[in-house]
């Protein structure tokens, strides 16, 4: 695997032939999609690094938003980043996805086997193009990767996985908030990202839809084996989904906690509650 620093982006030549992904997709009956991203065995001893921050700082004028962050995230890990509003957690995601550059320090992002930048971000808002039908919106996720029939097949396959295959030809305006966010998830996943950054994607959903989306997210993550970085301010959501929780306070990592619980996790189990309490203590410890 190639580890390329973000600032020296080179464009690899792409061979014009059917990819293993496309072939596998063609040969697999619908309902059994995800053949080409079979779960990698999660080998806990010898994992590749998905991305790492080395002394990364980001300042906006005088204000230090991220202060000397060191962070290594192994490939395939589900990491949750928690913090109060304005603690710098969204900045961390923007750095990771290349929307922003660090003021100092280095940030290396593993670009996956294909050598392409397959880091995807899912925003708090669905950000669907209102003038494109659902399937076309999902195809945006394949910009520069696939076109035409191949793109259409892939987008229909991923829509099937998020349970919206029958809405492919509709306009975004007729979908509910939760459905739009599922389309946004499909768009982020259709190119099989190596890293998926999630910027409070469930924050605007109602409580029931949110739980549904959490289950969907967890099952797709288990199938596709990407590295997930979930920024959230919902502590319960973080401990229910993540392998590891990072708490950011005043631009620094205040807590780095492993969540070694079996999946699927039950909402409201005592272990989850204990870990949740520990995180909340870190966040509000100085006030109580």
């Amino acid at each position: 695997m190639s580890v390329i620093a973000l600032d020296q982006q080179t464009k690899p030549a792409r061979p014009v032939k059917e990819t293993a992904e496309a072939r596998a997709l063609r040969e697999t009956p619908p309902g059994h999609w995800f053949p080409y991203a079979a779960p990698k065995p999660r080998d806990h001893d010898n994992r590749d690094i998905a991305f790492s921050f080395r002394g990364v700082s980001r300042k906006f004028g005088d204000k230090t938003v991220l202060d000397n962050i060191d962070l290594d995230v192994p490939a395939g890990q589900f990491i949750a980043v928690i913090g109060k509003s304005g603690c710098g957690k969204s900045t961390l995601l923007r750095l990771l996805t290349g929307l922003d550059k660090p003021t100092s320090g280095t940030l290396t992002v593993n670009k996956g086997i294909e050598g392409e930048n397959r880091t995807r971000i899912m925003f708090q808002e669905p950000r669907l193009l209102p003038w494109a039908r659902i399937a076309r919106n999902v195809e945006v996720g394949l910009t520069g990767i696939a076109k035409g029939t191949e793109a259409r097949e892939k987008s229909l396959a991923i829509l099937n996985d998020v349970g919206l295959a029958d809405r492919a030809e509709e306009w975004p305006s007729v979908l509910s908030g939760g459905q739009r966010q599922r389309v946004a998830l499909a768009r982020a996943l259709v190119a099989h990202p190596y890293i998926l950054a999630l910027d409070e994607p469930l924050g605007a959903l109602d409580a029931l839809t949110r739980i549904e989306m959490q289950h969907l997210l967890e099952s797709i993550w288990q199938q596709q084996a990407f590295t997930a970085v979930l920024v959230t301010h919902d502590v319960a959501e973080a401990v229910a989904l993540a392998d590891r929780v990072i708490v950011i306070d005043q631009g620094r990592i205040a807590l780095d906690l492993d969540i070694p619980l079996e999946r699927p996790r039950r909402h409201g189990s005592p272990e989850l509650a204990r870990l949740e309490g520990k995180i909340l203590d870190t966040l509000f410890g100085d006030q109580e």
Binding site: T97, G98, L99, N117, R120, I121, F123, E125, R127, L129, V140, G141, T143, G144, R187
Partner: peptide, 11 residues
């Protein structure tokens, strides 16, 4: 936000 989304997706 849509323009930013387009950029992130490499348009």
């Amino acid at each position: 936000q849509l323009v930013e989304m387009g950029r992130v997706y490499g348009m």
